[in-house]
Amino acid sequence: MIEIQNLTKVYKLSKKQMAKQKTKKNSKVAVQDVSLRAEKGEIYGLLGPNGAGKTTTLRCIATLLQPTDGSILVCGHDTVKDSEAVRKSIGFLTTDIKLDPQFSPKYMFYFFGRLHGLTDQEIEERKKELFSYFGITEFEDKKIEELSTGMKQKAAIAVSLVHDPEVVIFDEPTNGLDIVTARSVTEYLKKLREEGKLVLISTHIMTEAEKLCDRIGIIISGKKVMDGTLSEILEATGGEDLEDAFFHLYKQYSKEDED
């Protein structure tokens, strides 16, 4: 499970970045005082517009970033004090983390499998299962740079799951995928949930969140403004669907933010 307590992440801005963002402040609060708890056997979705702080939150959980304030526990391990143990128990995938284009999916699968300490036999078994599920087997020896976007994404997902992690964190997992590939990815996430894993995704696609997530946390301007099941959110906001509810919250909190 994942337990976030009062997570705050502040980026220091260089003069160049300050000029780019037209601000006089030399720091930017990306995430402010976010707390959440996600349990095994559920799909938790972080929903928010671009720049709301979703990716920053996920990166903090994956130990790539250190919280400025607050703490994160993944399967009982602190992301700062025990980052290696955290990395062992998670599979992490974001759009800006890519596989080496010069290598084949098979090579990358073995490479990361070995880094996770698996034996070649264990890796081969995982490869058979994941590559056949995602239909990678027939192009497993092709260079990744020769693959289509969808194929690349499928290969990246398979590689991130090589060590059968307890916690799966995907940043916008269906981004840029065609409808067929997107469906196979969401189906696999559901399969992981059935296997008792915790799946944490970020998305800005309302329908995806509605259909896939057991619980949804809505993030606006770095703050978590609400979380709960779909029906809880609809009830609390009085919206007809998630999009409706989201805009209701968005109006309310972006106004507060301006104030």
Partner: peptide, 10 residues
């Protein structure tokens, strides 16, 4: 972006 994938390994 291929280095980051190594950074999330143990």
């Amino acid at each position: 972006g291929t280095l980051a994938s190594m950074l999330v390994s143990p």
